[in-house]
Design a protein around this nucleic acid. Structure first.
Lengths: 349, 349
DNA sequence: GTGAAAGCGCTAACAT
DNA sequence: ATGTTAGCGCTTTCAC
């Protein structure tokens, strides 16, 4: 019952342990006859080499620590799928845990991964706790950020989506459709740097196109469904004259859709809605949602590649240069339309 | 730069390695003064005990292997969230990989997990490769199935959702609404045993309620979006007189919704649709979908608990008795309504 | 081509 | 209360 070790195999094959090791790792030279004997013995005994023993000796585990805020979020899930696809192909083991965007939990996870001696960590980092990552770097294990950056650690390998480009193109699209009073539904400034960026790109693009930015049309919600809904609803009620809204996340997009339904606003006849963040159900929505979609799975795959290829996996591998930025895509479906002559105030209810 | 070991800490603190170990693991007795010295030295050196060394010695890694078919599936993702919540709380490490419902991949993952010496495995097993699991059991590591069973391994710890109860209640609900020609959109028999079960419970419940089961109304699709859509569409076209359909998975439900939209069938005025399998967007659908929902996250949590509590974690822990069956819930939203007098053939288009 | 032996970092007897 | 030592299962010199 006790687990069979390399020693048992060696004994059964009538050779030394070193020979067994050579055969199994493919290192050194072994005569065909011996190799066969060893293989037979191993198969016979149902031998499984212990990664523990090997890792202790070689100082590499092949482990990859993955930290995401929330596995139930479709973007995170797809990202994870990409990481798994790459890691599996390379024979890597993926350790996963969720931070719930809590810096303390994140730090704890990093600590655990460090004790496990993972070769590297892939993370969608929480804002505002750079110490956590500095310690990772100084520990000498690989580190790749994804989806977000940590300003205090420039030069760290990073995979990003071109969200700025996405926001820009959706604004251009909307303005091209004739919209002039377009609202922005975003997250609170403190939430994340990408959210801030969304907002500033929104403003900048509008200005470039010669459309005035009305402060009243730029609203921010906390990252809860209630807050998002409240923000969307009050936006619609306060400014019945707006003709389009850009939502900065799928939660905010949902809130916008729900709120407009509740207020009997037809989409896109009364109001056009575009969401920066694709979700699997955007085409099941009625009408199907026009969105900016990020290549979640590719991002995961690339992040993992970056980590594995990372020259100094255990050699303080920082300063890998500029972030990898993957293109986003404006997926035009049916939730945005041209501005109609009818004013919103003329609608039912 | 070389990683600091227990020996370094011992030297720095001026004590033996055993003392350091005692302090850090909380075992044995150590004087307050020594404890302080050791702790200080450890903190100073930024020491992180190696899980590798400990695991090799103790023969337990605290690792949990999680195998799911597809992380992008919302049910699997929520299930994973539950596993992570429980494991994190217990200090367990979760290794994750996806099988894509491929028995060969599944077997390979099990093999890898075994080499990693995980303490146990939680899996949503693929049909038809019992050998894989028999070897796990004989390896002496913990095993918990979730969501599906492996007929050849009865007695293995298992967490299930009461899908039969869910199907029954949705059929009763529909019949109570006056529906008599209700269709079943299911998976191919070979796909999985739960799908088969759905179908037979569907038939049995209908019969119990004195409603004839029409073979033409029971259709099966392969697990691809195209096949599901084709099955749904042809069902609607073949039998314009049907008034309700229960779809056995979210993919099939989506197909039903899409197909009915395409055919200009109003939900629920022309046809009622119920889905066995909740998805986050069912309330965003228009109309919001009536579904049977499984407690995905609870299932994950319970599965992990079962594994951790498992008496013989490394002692051939099989034969844990009956499966844990968690209740499903019929979530009534707006996609099912009473049968109307108007016949479907009188509808627009 | 193959075996013996020295550790990798840790814990658990066993001494003291 | 604390130090010494023997492995856990493996890879890798170093001899032969």
């Amino acid at each position: 019952m006790a687990s069979v070790t390399i020693k048992d195999v060696a004994a059964a094959a009538g050779v030394g342990v070193a020979t067994v090791s050579r055969v199994l790792t493919g290192t050194g030279s072994v005569s065909a006859a011996t190799r066969a004997k060893v293989l037979a013995a191993a198969k016979n005994l149902d031998y499984r080499p212990s990664a523990l023993g090997r890792s202790l000796k070689t100082q590499r585990t092949g482990g990859i620590g993955l930290i995401i805020p929330n596995i139930s979020d479709p973007f995170c899930a797809d990202f994870t799928a990409g990481v798994l696809a790459c890691a599996h192909g390379q024979g890597g083991q993926v350790l996963i845990d969720v931070s719930h965007d809590d810096p303390a939990i994140e730090a704890e996870i990093v600590e655990r991964f460090a004790e496990q001696r993972v070769d590297g960590i892939i993370a969608m980092p929480v804002r505002g706790r750079p110490e956590t990552w500095k310690s990772v770097a100084s520990l000498g294990l690989g580190l790749v950020f994804a989806g977000r950056t940590v300003e205090e650690l420039p030069g760290t390998a990073t995979v990003l989506a071109d969200e700025a480009g996405g926001v820009r193109s959706v604004v251009e699209y909307l303005v091209g459709l004739g919209h002039r009073r377009v609202a922005f539904l975003g997250g609170r400034p403190a939430e994340s740097s990408t959210r801030r960026e969304h907002e500033s790109v929104f403003r900048a693009t509008l200005e470039e196109l010669g459309v005035a930015v009305e402060e009243e049309l730029v609203v921010r919600a906390r990252p809860t469904a209630d807050s998002a809904y409240a923000a969307a609803a009050s936006l619609f009620m306060r400014r019945p004259d707006l003709t389009a809204v850009v939502a900065a996340s799928h939660q905010l997009g949902e809130a916008a859709v729900l709120a407009s339904r509740e207020l009997n606003l037809r989409i896109p006849a009364d109001v056009s809605i575009a969401v920066v963040d694709d979700v699997p159900w955007s085409e099941l929505c009625d009408p199907p949602l026009t969105v900016v979609s990020r290549p979640a799975q590719d991002m995961g795959y690339r992040a993992c590649e970056l980590l594995l290829r990372s020259p100094g996996t255990r050699e303080g591998g920082r300063a890998q240069g500029r972030p990898v930025v993957l293109p986003t895509e404006l997926v035009v479906r049916a939730s945005c339309g041209p501005v109609t002559g009818s004013t919103r105030t003329a609608r039912g209810r």
